[in-house]
Structures are given as C-alpha cells and as structure tokens.
Design a protein around this nucleic acid. Structure first.
Lengths: 344, 344
DNA sequence: GTTAGCACTCGTCGGCGTTGAGTGCTAACC
DNA sequence: GGTTAGCACTCAACGCCGACGAGTGCTAAC
C-alpha cells in the first residue's frame, strides 16, 4: 500500500481544510468540497489507509481525522520543493522600512510587528549575531565625577554602552586620550581577543590601570553575553485567538516561554545556511511548543552576520503564506542592513 | 446610617477574604473566620447596609458579596494614610542589582522581572524621562564608506545611536573633528535647542553641510520621539493564572494592550510628585483594564529625571504587598541611578 | 441591638436522553 | 478490483432536569 497520487490529493485537501477550520475533517466534507468525483465511502477507505501510514490521527472514533505532524512535514517539504513560495512584496513590508533612517533596535521591533500582523501569528525577530562582533571604536565619555560611559561600536554598527567607574579626578581630555589608545589597540578585536590583550595594555598604560580594570570586566561580560542577542516579539495576543489555546494552562506556559527571552532566542536562533527552517510540533524540541510550529528564515548584513526572523503558530499554520511573508521580510531586512553598511 | 467602626472592620474582612479567594464572600464566612463574636445574621444586616452605601456588589441574589471599586478605594486610602507600608527590602531586590555594573536597558528589564515574580502580577518599568534630555557628547564613528554611526550621550547616561549618511570620501579623522565641533556647539542643549542651532552651525562649517543635514534630521526625530521612552514588561503570563482572566476575550484584549508599548507607556506614566498612584478598575480610564488595578511609584535619578515602576493586577490585588514591594524597588532604583551619576 | 429560624433564590454539578457527525464493514455494482 | 450505497455503531456535544448547597432577607424572640 503506497502513496499514490490520489491519496496525496486527499491528504492535501484534509490539511487545507483543517488549517482553515481547526475542526477534524470527515470523509463527507472532502467528497463534497474537494474530490467531488469520489463518494464519501471511497474517501473513507483512503483515509483509513492514510491513517495506517501515519499521516492522519483520529481524536476519537466518531470524529473526523486531523493531520499528523508527519503529514505537515510532507506538506511543507512539497511546498518547499515546488518552489512555489514567492517572496511576499506587498507594500506593508516595503513602506515600513522605506526612507527612514532607523535605529537597529527599532527596525527589529517593527519587523516583528509587521510580521505578526501580516501572518496573524506570533513573530520573533532576532538581531544579527553569530560571528563574534569586532570592535571598531571605543569611546569613554564622562557622565559624572567618578564614572564614565564606555561606548563600544562594533562592525555591525551595534552599540554597547556601560557605565564604568574611573578615578574621580579624571577629566574628559584624559578620557579621550584613553579612548584613542584603546581604539587603536583593540580595533578589529573580538571581545575575547580584547580580554587577552588588556593585561598587556595595562603594563603599557600603567597610570590608567583602574580604568582598564573596569573595562576588562565589561569586555569579559560582552564575550560571555553573546547569547543576549536582542530579540523582538510581536503579536503574542494573536495566539490566544486560536482554539488550540482555549486551554488556559497551555496558553500560560506558552506565554511564559515567550517571556523568557533568552530561551526564546536560543529556540529561534537558526543554525546552518538554509533559507528556511520549518519545525513542526514535536520537532521543535520544546515541550511547551509541542503543538506549535516554528518557521524561521534568515537575513544577513553586509558583514556576513546573520539574524533570524521567525513565526510561531499552531501546527495547522498557513505555511505557504508564512513562508512567503518571511521570505519577503528577509529580503527587505537584508537590503536594509546591507545598504546601511555600504550606501552611496 | 453612617460608617461606624464595625462596618469598617467587616468591610475590611470581606476585602481581605475576597483578595485571597476571588470568590464572593458570604456572611457566614465572615462570622466564622473574622468577626467570631458576631453571628452571621448580624453580619448579614451590616452587609446589607454596606451594599446600600455602595461598598459591596452582589453578583446575584444567592451569592456572597464582592467589594466594589469604591470599597477598594477606601481600603487603599486607609492603607496609604496608616503609613503601614514599609519598603520591602528583601534580598531579592537588593541582590539583583548589587555590585554589577549595568546597562540601563538591562536594569529596567530586570526590575520588571523582579517586580513581577515578587508580586505575582504583571510589572511595567518605564525608563526615566520627562525632562528633555541634554546632550553631553556627540560622536560620529565611521562604519562603512558613506555611512557613520552617530552616538549621542545624554545627561542621564542614555545613548541614542543612529546611522547617518556622510560623504563617501570622509575619513575617521574628519569625522572626529566634526564630532568635536558638534559636541562643543551643542553640549548641554536639548534636542529642540540643537535643532534651532544647527542652521547657524551650517553656516560656520559649510564644508560639512551634508553631515549636518543628516544630523539635524536625527535631532528632530529625537525631539519628537520623547514619548518613545523604553518600557520593560515582566510577568505577563502571571495574569492568565487569575480566574478573572479565564475569559479568553478579556485576556486577549489585555495582552494586546500590553503589547502596544506606546499606549502602555502613556497609561503607566505617572504625572505629579506623589509617591504612589493607585488606580482601581474604572479609575484607570482604560476600558481594557476596567477590572484591573494599576499601582505605580516613581524613582528618580540624580539629575531629577523621573521613571515609573508599576504593577498591573486584578482589582482584588494584594495592595499592601504590592505597595511595599514597589516602594522597595523604587528606593533601590533611585539609589542605583543616583549613584551612577555621582559615584565616589 | 443581636440572634435563631425559616422560607426562598439561584448558580453549580452530575446524570440522562437526544442528536448528529463520522466511522467501519459488508454487499452489490460497474 | 476499484467504487459505492447502506447500515449499524460510536461518541462528543447539547440541552434538560433535579438535587444540592451556599447565601440572602425577613421575622420573631431574646
């Protein structure tokens, strides 16, 4: 008993219908709405086969069938192979990022916003990361006697700022000299390398050991804290609209997962170089998401850093729409960040 | 028929019990658990009076009574007058901010986190704002040919960064010279003042008109965008645990309100100089929050800028606990930001 | 002023029959 | 051999009691 073409068509119809209605679909529905040339009895036989093959589940005997994770997998794989996903280039995406010069932070916030309204699911956008950032410029600015703000610009244009303490009597010219020296010495370093070099610098610039000390702590924090990539989330409330979350307990655990940004980031972060990742139900590897699907795509900056955009929805998600929206948004973001770093 | 002492005690008992259980409380409960010297019949008479006075509501005739917004108001006012709110100084608050040098952003994130776990409600923290920030230092850093990152440090230690475009052939020394000039010319200005002065500067530094042009756009955006104060939220999932949100539609509208940060910020933002604000149910002025209460407190930085911390919970919130936690957190944050700007 | 007693209300909960969607199987049909 | 009509069967959902019990208001007695 293999998977002939008709079985496939029927399976497709079931998935389509279930995605739309979230109600177990019966043989009669298929025979009337989709395969009008076949009777419900025939469909029934085929459905029984499909169940044996593991593509359908039956919540209880007198209910219709619902697609299994395996079915969605098949569905999505076909979708991806068929190349039918065309990047959504609706104005909503385009106009949102046009003309305006933007702060990185606001861009990813807005991207999450747009993604979620466009899909109706929950959207997550992860700022570019992956490669260790490289230091481009270091600036110490006095904010009050005894403390200074250390601003570090990295190659991705990312800024980290921290307050560090400095000797009380240090004036802004001195701070500037140190900044200059630090920039020169650590330019193009990763935080890791910076940590390694600071002891050497200390010997050279002995008068400013205290400042270097604070700075070193900051660097080691930056090194360890790469997991703290900023992550924007949008459309969480959308999820509550789907019947799969009428169970409060489920909704709660989902929400609380979304709230722990670190965990969320590591779930969303996409490794490898594929254009899309689709994880369906159990494939997510997260118990709280066992009946969600996560679709992610990447965008990249000129410097080769990769960010991830993703959509989280119920397993019966509108994959084809989500894929094309993600694709469109990915392109848009790549363009945006690409051009930022190399504009005429 | 006035409010004698006994009525007050009974009302108090009803509120306490309802806060705990979320179940309409009956006369028998009060007579057994609180006013053991009185019979349920007596309590019943008193409750009937209290209902006439508008302090109690009756969901239906054979259910117990629940406190009205007016009752909570009385309750909270007494709480505030009695001075019984002692700043919660449990280690949870203290240790979270000790020793570590922090980015402002992370501080408010963590504050929201701690507030929500400590209270069990949803917590919102608004970064300091109010006074127009004053420019302290401006730095232009080249990120790629043709674009530069403009970093503006303000008196509150806040950093804004934007990418602006610059002539392609400009090297970092030139950028530095401009930075220096800008800092000198605009130091201690508000964004508004900066906008005003830029035309004058343009005349003086004619060679760099293009850069100034971009910079001016940025300033005017900063001026208008003060409403975009950063806001951190924590413990949203907590809310779903309360029975008042078993209604999905309510939960959804609440969540979506929380998601629109701008609206949320303007709701939370506390005007005036009082230590606490307590808004109960309809007093919030937000239909989505008609059965929530919002309690806010302020913290302030050395420079006099005020931030707000707030807790959003059901109207039957544990006001006394929330008030003391907020008070503790407010102190802690004030200390933190106070010392940041004037450390030994 | 307080309390015991009592009739009354009304939401909640569990049981029960009805309904209807959907299945599986069998036998007939092409 | 695949397709279909027919039929018995299953089972969740729905609505309808009736019992239960928490709680009230009122009255009469203390």
């Amino acid at each position: 008993m293999g998977m002939d073409d008709r079985k496939l068509r029927i399976l497709q119809a079931i998935i389509d219908d279930y995605i739309l209605t979230a109600v177990p679909v019966g043989s009669r529905t298929i025979s009337r709405k989709y395969e009008t040339s076949l009777s419900s009895a025939t469909i029934r036989n085929e459905m029984s086969d499909l169940e044996d093959l593991g593509y359908l589940d039956q919540p209880h005997v007198s209910a219709g069938r619902i697609p299994s994770a395996k079915a969605y997998r098949l569905y999505v794989d076909q979708l991806l192979q068929s190349g039918r996903i065309t990047a959504d280039s609706s104005d909503t995406i385009r106009t949102h990022f046009a003309n305006r010069v933007q702060q990185m932070e606001r861009v990813i916030d807005q991207a999450a916003q747009v993604l979620s309204t466009l899909t109706g699911y929950t959207a997550v956008v992860l700022e570019p990361g992956g490669k260790q950032p490289r230091i481009r410029n270091i600036q110490l600015v006095s904010v009050s006697p005894g403390s200074a703000l250390a601003i570090i610009v990295t190659d991705a244009g990312l800024v980290r700022d921290h307050i560090i303490s400095v000797p009380r009597n240090m004036d802004s010219d001195e701070l500037y000299t140190i900044s200059r020296a630090l920039t020169e010495a650590l330019s193009d370093c990763t935080p890791q390398q910076a940590c390694d070099r600071i002891p050497i610098l200390m010997a050279r610039m002995e008068g400013n050991a205290a400042v270097l000390q604070s700075f070193s702590g900051l660097m080691s924090e930056a090194r360890d804290g790469d997991s703290h990539r900023r992550v924007a989330v949008g459309g969480v409330s959308n999820m509550l609209a789907y019947p799969e979350y009428s169970d409060m307990e489920k909704a709660r655990s989902f929400l609380s997962l979304i709230e722990t940004r670190d965990k969320l980031a590591s779930i969303i972060a996409q490794k490898g170089d594929v254009a899309f990742t689709v994880r369906i139900g159990p494939e997510t590897g997260v118990p709280e998401m066992s009946d969600c699907s996560i679709v992610t795509a990447t965008y990249s900056t000129r410097s080769g850093r990769q960010g991830t955009i993703g959509v989280i929805g119920p397993t019966r998600m509108q994959y084809s729409r989500v894929l094309s929206v993600l694709s469109g948004m990915g392109q848009q973001l790549s363009e945006l960040f690409g051009s930022n770093e190399e504009k005429q």
